[in-house]
Amino acid sequence: MTAAGGALIAIESVAKRYVTSSGPVDALDNVSLSVAEGEFCTLIGPSGCGKSTLLGMLGGLVSPDRGRLLVAGGPVTGPDPRRVATVFQDAGLFPWRTALENVEFGLELQGVPAERRRRRAGELLGPLGLGGFAERYPRELSGGMKQRVAIGRALAIDAKILLMDEPFGALDEQTRVLMGEWLLDIWRRTRKTVIFVTHSLHEALFLSTRVAVMTARPGRIKSVLELTMEYPRSMESPEMVALRAKLWSEMREESLRAMQ
């Protein structure tokens, strides 16, 4: 079906340079990665390593300077909400829309009739734990709830691929852990292909089928870890503790470089 051996997503030698007022910055340099359908692939790396840029490219919001990106065999030329849905770190809810109307947004843009999209969005709110909050406005919701609405908005359009850019980055630790468990549940039920950006080792190890560690700027793929443990995972198992140490030593090296 696709050139790259059945990969749903193929990133081929992409590079990106930003021109800022203090000179050019190489955000990404020669990044290649392919992701198969149904994977939960996490990108982890120090701040400013271009993780978000890479995600932006997959979402069609940023164009690469070099290299190319293929989704389902075709090049990414712009946002394609029929195949790719994005969740951002900042929930980015529209403050003049209720939770339900925010979830409907993507369907509305796709021209789904009002009644059908309302029904679809309504069905999503329950599993999102927002059953009683359909008519609430974003300012009446907590940070975790807002992020769940944003995830609902992404799930509503039923794209195969879910891009998540540090979706729980702004939440407190406890909420973050719970949201991770909840997301895992959603992913296992919907079988979406997820590309997940995070700073958190815990999230990476708890959720992913694969973790790609990125280097400090300019971002490259430093190493890729395959995680084969069953879900739900115990963070205390010897295997997990060893993986955590390994991942941390790689991360630590890059984080130190990023700080210099």
């Binding site: 919001l61 946002p79 994005t86 980015g92 003049w96 843009l109």
Partner: peptide, 24 residues
């Protein structure tokens, strides 16, 4: 950021204007 979100969900210039800019 809201403009970016709308674009990610397929909004073009006109939709961004009426659905994001005007209400904001």
């Amino acid at each position: 950021h809201l403009v970016l979100v709308a674009r990610a969900y397929g909004a073009g210039v006109v939709v961004v204007f009426f659905r994001v800019m005007l209400p904001s």
